[in-house]
Amino acid sequence: MTAKFCATLGAAVLATGLAAGAGALWAAGEETHIERQPWTFSGTFGKFDEAQLQRGFKVYSEVCQRCHSIKRLYFRNLVQPGGPAFSEAAIKSLAGNNYQVDDVPDEQGKINKRPAVLADSFPPPYPNEQAARYAQNGALPPDLSLIARARGIDAGTPFYRVPDAMLRDIVSGYQEAGADYIYAYLLGYADPPAGMKMAEFMNYNKAFPGHQTAMPNPFLAGDGLVKYDDGTPATVDNYARDVIAFLSWAADPMLQERKRLGLLVIFYLIITAVLLGLAKRRIWREVH
């Protein structure tokens, strides 16, 4: 009886995982194999590395910000625990000195700019989509607030390997497909293979579906583009890893709290399940 239950539940979970996993991961590199990267925040015990997030923010503000907005991020988020955890004073002056946001209309109805405060969100580099496209040869640089969650990988797993792959992902808590894809994308710039015709303004990228992307290589200048103050080697590889960690945090700022609470809940439920199982057996002992 118990075996049948386990078998049925197991089959059902497998079926769920099979169907869900196969459908959920998405075609971001059909023939390209996207490697999985080690991230400090992956898995059951994953946490963000504060120093890495701070470096990632530096990379974002010096390299990405001129084209990509991050409008769902507020300056106050940079101060809250679970993230880069800058000091409040540092972000207040960063916001006030470097960012201007729209003020409320003045007496004449004109909208002036004022220095940003903690409660403001990051102002976008372009006032609207049309201005962005005009400046970028018709392409729209996507907002980066959720980019780490809005990308996935279609690993092209053959159907008989799908249950095994899904089980491994579910057990390990794999949620970093977006981060892995963006890493492959940022470091995937290369010369197009011989004979490939590139469209106007497009750049060849190994990871991007179709291999032609409107975004030029942001790290074209190579190592040393961004100066790191904490001794971390200023290499393109580190820039990519750090900015992706930062963007993963921006997309999911509650990750650390979520996993912390998750461990407590799972631990509690395991104990509860054991106790309830023993209680059930005691109650049923007379009946069996």
């Binding site: 509860t272 106790l275 209680a279 005691r282 109650i283």
Partner: peptide, 17 residues
């Protein structure tokens, strides 16, 4: 005592959660 203790303990634990 034999049956109620574990039952009460289990229910209390579940109830607190």
């Amino acid at each position: 005592t034999r049956r109620d203790f574990i039952v009460i303990a289990a229910q209390a634990f579940a109830g607190v959660g």
